[in-house]
């Protein structure tokens, strides 16, 4: 599996670099909106309950990571794209043939690929988290945002849950890519589900956010919400992950490679 990992690591460097830069850029953008735009986001100087978070987020123990956790859906989109590109492009370009000739054990090949992309996503989240923290430390004093409650442990906790949530979003992209064998279709479908479909479902099903993947993964990234506890988010996330992996491996193990 180490060979599969190394191979994917080499070939995915350029794409992953772009993805990591995108994550950092998104977090910087969200961070600036949260901290500098805090006044305009609500009364009380720190903002209260605006669309991208509020005072409670910024002054909480993990306030330094507020930009990161707030950006989870956008980071999730990047992660979906990275995983989808990693899986689908080999079918689109026919390179899956070469890979399977070199590594005929399909489970090993797929595991190495997923681990390599996962490592890039984790690097992206960690780098974005570091940038988010630095940005928070620099900007918070100037905006009269209290940092007294901020702790490194809480920030690391949020960094960890955000990374896991990003991987879960990516897994959705990978499953879609395995089913469709098209990067464009899988990325579009993933984003459409994340930004549109799950929200539309929420209009007809009040508790959709408590059960459906995007809501659950976001709740996990935030360390739980008012409606979804962290424990529930973990259990459901693990369930979705296992289901996704079973589908992906089952399809890949049995599929004829005619591309």
């Amino acid at each position: 599996m180490i060979r599969s990992f190394t191979s994917e690591w080499i070939r995915f460097q350029k794409t992953a670099r772009t993805g990591i830069l995108a994550m950092v850029g998104l977090v910087v953008m969200i961070g600036l909106m949260l901290f500098i735009g805090a006044d305009s986001m609500g009364p009380g100087g720190g903002g209260h309950g605006g669309p991208l978070g509020g005072a409670a987020d910024l002054t909480a123990a993990d306030g330094a990571m507020a930009a990161l956790s707030t950006a989870i859906n956008l980071i999730g989109i990047v992660s979906i794209a990275l995983f989808a590109l990693s899986v689908a492009r080999d079918f689109e370009w026919g390179t899956i043939r070469n890979l399977l000739v070199s590594q005929p054990r399909r489970a090993t090949l797929l595991s190495g690929k997923l681990l390599a992309v996962s490592s890039y996503v984790i690097i992206g989240v960690v780098v974005a988290g570091v940038v988010a923290g630095l940005l928070a430390v620099v900007l918070a004093p100037g905006q009269d945002i209290s940092t007294e409650s901020w702790t490194v442990a809480a920030s690391l906790g949020t960094l960890g849950t955000t990374a896991i949530a990003a991987l879960l979003f990516g897994l959705v992209g990978a499953v879609l890519a395995m089913l469709t064998r098209s990067a464009a279709i899988s990325i579009t479908a993933g984003i459409a589900y994340l930004l549109v479909i799950e929200n539309l479902l929420g209009l007809f099903w009040d508790s959709a956010g408590e059960w459906l993947p995007a809501g659950i993964f976001s709740a996990l990234a935030g360390g739980g919400t008012d409606v979804v506890s962290l424990e529930k988010a973990i259990v459901l996330s693990v369930s979705y992950a296992i289901l996704g992996l079973i589908v992906m491996y089952a399809v890949f193990m049995r599929r004829d490679v005619t591309d």
């Binding site: 060979r3 599969s4 190394t6 191979s7 994917e8 080499i10 070939r11 350029k14 070469n98 890979l99 070199s102 590594q103 090949l109």
Partner: peptide
């Protein structure tokens, strides 16, 4: 990717 890097990915796998 370059021809060489393409081969590197396969050599790593192999």
């Amino acid at each position: 990717l370059s021809g060489e890097t393409n081969l590197r990915t396969l050599a790593a796998l192999d």
